[in-house]
Simulated scan of single mutants.
Amino acid sequence: MLDFLNQNSGALTVIFAAVVMLSTVVYAVLTAFLVAETRRMRRAQTEPKVEVFIKHREEWINLIHAYVRNIGLGPAYKISFDISAESGGEGAQALIDDFTKANFFKTGLKYLGPGQEQISGFSQMTEKFDQKIESVLVFDVRYEGATGKQYQEKFRLDFSEFKGRSQIGKPHLYAIAKHLETIKSDIHNLATGFKRIKADVFDSEDRDRERKEWEEHHAEVIDKSKESAKNGS
Rank of each mutant, 00 (worst) to 15 (best):
N8W: 09
N8M: 02
L12K: 02
M21C: 13
S23F: 13
V25G: 05
A28C: 11
V29Y: 09
L30E: 15
T31L: 15
A32D: 11
F33M: 13
L34I: 10
V35L: 12
R40M: 03
A44S: 12
E51T: 10
I61V: 12
I64D: 01
I64F: 11
A66K: 00
A66C: 10
V68H: 04
G72L: 02
A76V: 07
A94M: 01
F99T: 01
F99E: 00
F104W: 08
Y111C: 11
L112M: 06
P114D: 11
G121T: 05
G121K: 05
F122D: 12
S123F: 02
K128A: 13
Q131V: 01
S135M: 04
F139M: 01
G145K: 00
G145P: 13
A146W: 04
T147L: 14
K154C: 01
R156M: 10
L157G: 05
E161F: 04
E161H: 03
F162T: 02
F162C: 02
I168L: 09
G169V: 10
H172Y: 14
A177P: 00
S185V: 08
S185C: 05
D186I: 14
H188N: 00
A191P: 00
K195G: 10
K195W: 05
K198V: 04
V201R: 13
S204T: 06
D206P: 00
E213L: 12
E213T: 10
H217T: 10
H218Q: 10
E220W: 14
V221C: 04
I222V: 15
